[in-house]
Nucleic acid binder design. Structure first.
Lengths: 339, 339
DNA sequence: CTGAAACATGAAAACGATGCCGGTAAGGGT
DNA sequence: ACCCTTACCGGCATCGTTTTCATGTTTCAG
């Protein structure tokens, strides 16, 4: 690694002080035109680049955003893209750390970023995370923090997330409207906020339609296709087996789909299926899967914008919330009634 | 943002010099046990964290790796996961920048990371990148650099990539073995190394099997499902239309699949299809798609390991290459002969 | 011709930590 | 009483940049 040219090199070469060179480079007043020109010319020639580390140390800001996410699946990658785009535009660099759905990794990442002195945090928690000391620590240190997608409720920071209750409501109501009578839900990890919201939307919609809730038809499982497959198989072997499944992620829906097909049931005739996220794959499968679009890219952009606003304002933004409205995309796996 | 406790605060409180505090914290000799204890106790109490910026400035290293990738699709995300895992383990943080297949963005990212003073670069070029000044600049500055996946040939740095020729060979030979006679290729962007390698493997295999090459059966297009769909449609409307397509990515294969289905052709009976990357989706589609597994996670890990080795050795590693061997996964879209 | 304003530059502190070098005091050996 | 070692600690420079304050020189009005 070669030594970079510094302001000192220029100063020495031109028999100037570092202060003058610094001023000249930033077009400050109080520098004669000739020196300014000379300095700039030499800087150009020596390919001078200001040392960001020194600046960061001085100004106590790094122009870096720490982003902590549980994984890099399609949805998260799309959100990160949104964050990245806005951040780049604003001159910020993003450090993305995956916690891989592990609480330990999430804590480790937080620590690392914390003493990397990022200017702030954009966080979506792992499915294992049930205790929030590490998040609160960020807050205690008065470091800007925004939560997105998988947010936590009992903590007072800006949040951007999907209206998951509404998303589940849309999907459930649709299944009901299509004439499915016994709808089960693959509800994801039990302690996760989005799981509970989507489950709540599901239950609430059943109630509104005066449909009795069968507790056996609520199955929790990790975001994992294999588990979903097993869970769905179990559902299908029940006495009063369901005639539709609402899965709170497309991955789960796909697992369920495999089980449904294997049982020889035809969608949408014998069985209905709806997922969540509207991953591109849902359109391509046979049958294509009804799913809830969550506008991940927009969530990402909104998150970054909110974060930047928080960074630059003095106002208290801790109770700001942006709730994105989902949209149901109806496909073959559940469309029985064509209008 | 609150001011962090510094070594000075501790020194002042304990009426010690900063040097002594520094030594005490690092368990250096030359510090009495009592002072050591006192310092550590106070450090604990005040939640002292060494300021990484100051250290980086002093030592001229940031413990950060700049990773530049063309996008965040399934394969890249998997590779990044591999890189991340190894880097984290070794105490490095990763800054991932997506160029979004844009040459301009790639250059911008390079500049940003360059003056963020990362310790080195791990790069996979965008499909637009045809001129490599920005990459060479990294090299000129003697900053460690490793290329992976989409590598460049005329540049002397360590490289980790898939044996793309072999991958294409496997897929093509398989299609031939299954009795397909007129095999076309969806060959990706024209200037991209992996495109050309896979195309070369394809052509070479046809030759080895004494099959004449129809130039019209080589179609270049962006890595984009829609383009692939259009290209495939065109192929299918030719006079002597092909009876199989080898697509150099699964996304392209999917686009082709849609066109094939739409034309009423049955796979594998009327038409053969093979893709590349072995994305999970290929297993799930109907028909499931034959594809070349490229071990993306392993490539990521190997890349990071190579990078770390380069960082810590004095040896010249510029001609090191790791070539990963692909594996063909045969599925319904091309399996005509069951053995 | 003097004084002040205007202009151009330099010196030094600051950001936080490390590491070399040197200094003091205590203790041991002669 | 003298010297030498050893243990412990402080001072200072350093990394690269900005910024405040001070200094020096010129110019022009009175």
């Amino acid at each position: 690694m070669e030594r970079q040219t510094t302001i000192k090199d220029i100063a020495l070469a031109l028999r100037l002080s570092t202060s003058t060179v610094s001023r000249a480079l930033r077009d400050a007043a109080d520098v004669s035109i000739e020196t300014r020109k000379a300095v700039k010319a030499l800087a150009e020639e020596l390919d001078y680049q200001p040392n960001k580390l020194a600046l960061s140390l001085l100004k106590n800001q790094t122009n870096t955003i720490g982003v902590i996410i549980p994984n890099l699946d399609y949805v998260m990658a799309t959100m990160v893209k949104g964050i990245d785009e806005v951040a780049l535009e604003a001159g910020y660099t993003v450090m993305v750390c995956q916690s891989d759905e592990s609480f330990g990794r999430e804590i480790l990442n937080t620590k690392r970023l914390l003493d990397s002195l990022v200017d702030g945090f954009i966080v979506s928690v792992s499915s294992e995370t049930m205790v929030y000391e590490h998040i609160k620590k960020i807050q205690t240190k008065k470091i800007p923090l925004v939560l997105f997608d998988r947010v936590i409720n009992n903590i007072n920071v800006p949040k951007i997330f999907l209206d998951n209750v509404e998303g589940a409501r849309l999907a459930t109501q649709h299944l009901i409207d299509q004439g499915y009578k016994r709808i089960a839900i693959l509800a994801g990890p039990e302690n996760l906020g989005i799981s509970n919201d989507r489950k709540a939307g599901f239950i609430q919609t059943l109630k509104q339609n005066k449909i009795a809730l069968d507790k056996n038809h609520i199955i929790h499982c990790d975001f994992n296709q294999e588990y979903a497959y097993i869970a769905a198989k179990e559902l299908l072997s029940m006495n009063k087996r369901p005639d539709a499944i609402f899965a709170i992620s497309d991955r789960l829906a796909i697992g369920a789909m495999l089980a449904i097909k294997e049982a020889g049931l035809k969608m949408p005739k014998d069985f209905g299926l709806a997922g969540f996220n509207n991953e591109p794959i849902t359109k391509l499968l046979t049958p294509s899967i009804t799913s809830v679009e969550m506008f991940a890219f927009d969530i990402g952009k909104a998150t970054a914008k909110m974060f930047l606003e928080m960074l630059h304002t003095d106002e208290d933004m801790s109770d700001k919330e942006i709730v994105i409205k989902p949209k149901l995309v109806i496909r073959e796996s559940s469309r029985r009634i064509s209008e």
